[in-house]
Each structure stands twice: as structure tokens, then as C-alpha cells.
Nucleic acid binder design. Structure first.
Lengths: 142, 142
DNA sequence: GCTTGCTCCTATAGCGGCTAGAGCATGTAG
DNA sequence: CTACATGCTCTAGCCGCTATAGGAGCAAGC
């Protein structure tokens, strides 16, 4: 009888790399699964789902702590989804901020690159703007 | 006679924190300055400029290796600025990619949040999409 | 001179989220 | 039975800092 999915299979099915799965177990994001007599981890379908949830959440930029909360919420379906909503909304705000900041950064880089004389470093717009903060229009965060 | 600027002053002038300055020295981004008899670092105007250059470059998202190259270029003004140009251009490409990815992410998050019934977790769109990758339209990187 | 209190010093460890490598044990196909 | 893939643990490394501990230096006021 072959009960339980090996870590490699669960990795393939979920898209989470093997060492990352072990890391998630270590930090308590994924429960420690039962082991075979030989000491190998054996997973089931629930674990695969959980890992897929985690991977997807990470792709969407949620950090581990947020994912922990989201997973706990998923486990109690009768609770209000206010908290999940809140996490997503807060994250959306952060993403919008980052886009705004990166867009300003993009414009500044364009200005640098376009203004470049393609000559000697002495007259290079790129170096010039980096050296003199006053010549730069970007004052945000990356 | 008080020759040399103390690390605190250079920090204030450049906007780079004191431990970060020491860190930059450690990794060879900033040359080790002379010391007082008591063993304190003494900087000059050039160092302040260099640190400002570094800070500004970091704000624009360049990594330490790129900054090393840019600083070397700045020190040899007669060279062609092709390389500086290249670094800036490559970085611009990365920034544009990131913006595109974050914009897709933003839309997906909006869809999640807007679709939320604000009821129980069981019917929560946020949790639902995270659990089922197929329901998500975002398939990029953050 | 002496004390107060600020700045500075080194050295080490930690952050997040993994990833890589060493050196073994186990499971499986031919 | 043997080869080889896959698994195991443990440790260290990545980036760019930041924080903490435990001291030493130095200027100003008394």
C-alpha cells in the first residue's frame, strides 16, 4: 500500500520547490506531515492544496505572516471574511504605492538615458544626475 | 586644527546612516578613510559627494555592483559613457517589467477585493481566488 | 582637573524568504 | 543486487542593511 505523497510529487503538484516546502515546515507555515518508517515526509491532497494556496499568495506578494492569517481564516469558513478583505486591501494600497513610485523612477531613468550625449563620461547625463541630487526629479522610494 | 569630518556629520550631509557608511566601507564601496589618534574615521568633501552619489543611486534602485561600476566610471571622465548608459538602460527595462507585473497584480487584487461579499469566509472571493489558481488572472512575478 | 553625556568604536547576530552544498540514508527499477 | 534517483539533516550564504552589546574618545561645563 502506498499511502502518502512524497515531497517531490507534492512539490511538482503545487509548484513549490522541495527545499522551500521543508523551509515552510520549519517556520510553521505548513504542518509537519507524518513520516514513513525510513523517515520520509508523506503528504496528502490537503497539503498540496495548502501549498498551492501559499504559492499563489506569495506570487501575489503577500508575506508569510499574512499568509499564515489567510490560511487560518480558510480553516474556519464560518468566520467573517473582514480580516481577509483587510489584508488584501492593505496589500492593494502597498502595490499602488509601489507602482506610483516605480513610475516616477521610470520617468527619471528615461530622462537620464535620453539626455545622454553618448560621449565621454564627463558629459554623461546618467553620471551627472546621480552625482547631483538637485538635477533629479525623483525623490521617492523604490 | 580640526581636519576631517566625523562620520556623524558625513552621515547627516549625505543622508546615509552611520552604520550603513561603515557597512559600505566593509564591502569596499567606500574607501577606508584616515583615522584620528583615537581611532575615529575622518572624512572629507569627496567622501560626502561619493556617499550622496551612492544614496541617490540606491534610491533609483541600482544594486551595489552597478554602483561600484558607476563610481569607477565617474572617476575616469574621459572614458566613453556607454557602460553607464547600458547600466541605466538595463535598469530601466527591469523597472518597466516590474511596473507591468505590479499593474497586473493590482488588477487582480482589485478584482478580489471588489468581488468580496463581505460575508463569511466560506463565500469570500479573496480566499477563493487564493485557493484556486484557475480563478486567478494573474500569472506573473512580483 | 573632573564629570557628564554625546558620539564613536568593534564585533556579532538578525531580518525575509529562500537557495546551495555537504555528506549520508532510503526506496525503486532493471 | 546493484545503480541511481530521491530523500534526509545540518550548515552557510544571498542582499542590503539594521540592531544590540559593551566599550572608548572627546568637548563643554563646573
Amino acid at each position: 500500500m502506498n499511502h502518502g505523497i512524497a515531497i517531490g510529487k507534492v512539490s511538482e503538484a503545487s509548484g513549490v520547490k522541495v527545499p522551500t516546502i521543508r523551509y515552510y515546515e520549519q517556520i510553521g507555515l505548513l504542518p509537519a506531515p507524518p513520516r514513513t518508517d525510513g523517515g520520509r515526509r508523506t503528504y496528502d491532497g490537503k497539503d498540496t492544496e495548502r501549498l498551492t494556496f501559499i504559492r499563489h499568495s506569495r506570487e501575489l506578494g503577500f508575506d508569510i505572516d499574512e499568509i499564515k492569517t489567510l490560511l487560518e481564516l480558510q480553516d474556519s469558513p464560518d468566520q467573517s471574511c473582514e480580516q481577509a478583505d483587510g489584508i488584501a486591501k492593505a496589500h492593494l494600497v502597498e502595490v499602488r504605492k509601489k507602482i506610483a513610485s516605480l513610475t516616477a523612477l521610470q520617468h527619471e531613468l528615461e530622462r537620464m538615458v535620453e539626455g545622454c550625449s553618448h560621449g565621454r563620461v564627463e558629459t554623461c547625463r546618467v553620471i551627472e544626475i546621480l552625482a547631483d541630487h538637485g538635477k533629479c526629479r525623483y525623490h521617492g522610494e523604490t
